[in-house]
Design a protein around this nucleic acid. Structure first.
Lengths: 196, 196
DNA sequence: GTCTATATGGCGATAGAC
DNA sequence: GTCTATCGCCATATAGAC
């Protein structure tokens, strides 16, 4: 039942599907491409998934499933709110740097903006994480709009990675700008002092 | 030569292509879809463009072509650097709010990350604008890394729009969070004071 | 510059043997 | 659970008439 990589067929399919969908998007990947990549026939894939859309949905859920664990330790900890925020920023940036495919999948989901998938993602994945961040922001700056502040924190972390493909062609770019630690430090500095 | 909308056939095709590519992406749009939308045959489109890829490239350039004009007045003005930054943030957010298709096309380009198109975009479109922003940042905070600071300014503006499809499902969202002026004020406040 | 008709191949999905 | 073979359709692109 398990291959030499310790994965059963379904997991093998999902792993490669994650790679392909992240790279090319839903309509950029054919069942034949995927079958090729996992060394199976198309018909075998259809044995595990009823259709391409279901496969895509399961792939997205598969890509998200281990992410919540990383952050819960931070939110459950006993640090003061400011420190929780710093730990979260660091952890998020590390996670985005480590799992590029995860990052690309989110970006594609947001631009495709399928309303059904969007609500599913919001409820099943983002709601809890966002609530924790929201509470920390409320504690830190009760006079501010916590929702906008939380989005801004996420912006500062995530957009560095979205700009990665083009940044290296822009003036004053340095290789060190790609290091997660450098990015995280910069984000925290802005959050602490502003930029002006 | 010109239709009742004042556009010739090529412009009509590019206008609808911009809408479709922004919504569905390159591989999500077929030549038949597009032909349908402009009330032409597929063959007629191929009279104006040699293939789908060229059509896509021209569409992206078409979508970008009027954008530089909006900002040059700000950079050329005689305001102090801090005020130029504030004007830029406002103008960028207004532009993103006004032209959603433009916003989606950028997001898709960044996630597709075709190296050839990326370098083309960087050189032809972003280089000049980014340089102006960079110079303003250097003047405002000479001790900071200007490249990272400039990216952070763009992050704060652009990511609010990227999160738009999911934000309304997240806790504490209010309709006013979609107003460009509210977003711009929030961005400037963070840049001035930080968040903590 | 626009059309109809068509060539050629890839697509998602299924039938049925092993 | 995996395969080969195949269906019916839609994709990009072209030929050639008007």
């Amino acid at each position: 039942m398990l291959g030499s990589d310790g994965l059963n067929s379904k997991e093998k399919i999902l792993t490669q599907a994650k790679t392909l969908f992240a790279e090319k998007g839903f309509s950029g990947v054919s069942m034949r491409n995927l079958a090729n990549k996992v060394n199976m026939s198309v018909a075998s894939i259809y044995h595990h998934f009823p259709d391409k859309n279901s496969l895509y949905l399961e792939t997205v859920q598969f890509a998200f499933q281990d992410k919540a664990v990383v952050f819960s330790a931070i939110w459950q900890g006993k640090s003061p709110a400011e420190q929780k925020l710093a730990l979260f920023v660091n952890a998020l940036i590390q996670e985005l740097a480590k799992d590029r495919e995860f990052h690309c999948l989110i970006q594609r989901e947001l631009v495709d903006a399928n309303p059904v998938r969007m609500e599913m993602l919001a409820k099943d994945v983002f709601h809890e994480e966002f609530s924790f961040l929201l509470n920390v922001m409320k504690e830190i700056t009760p006079e501010r709009d916590a929702h906008l502040a939380a989005i801004s924190v996420l912006s500062l972390c995530k957009y560095h990675f979205e700009m990665q493909p083009i940044r290296c062609f822009l003036p004053d770019w340095k290789p060190e700008h790609e290091e997660p630690q450098v990015i995280a430090n910069q984000v925290m500095k802005i959050l602490l002092e502003g930029i002006l």
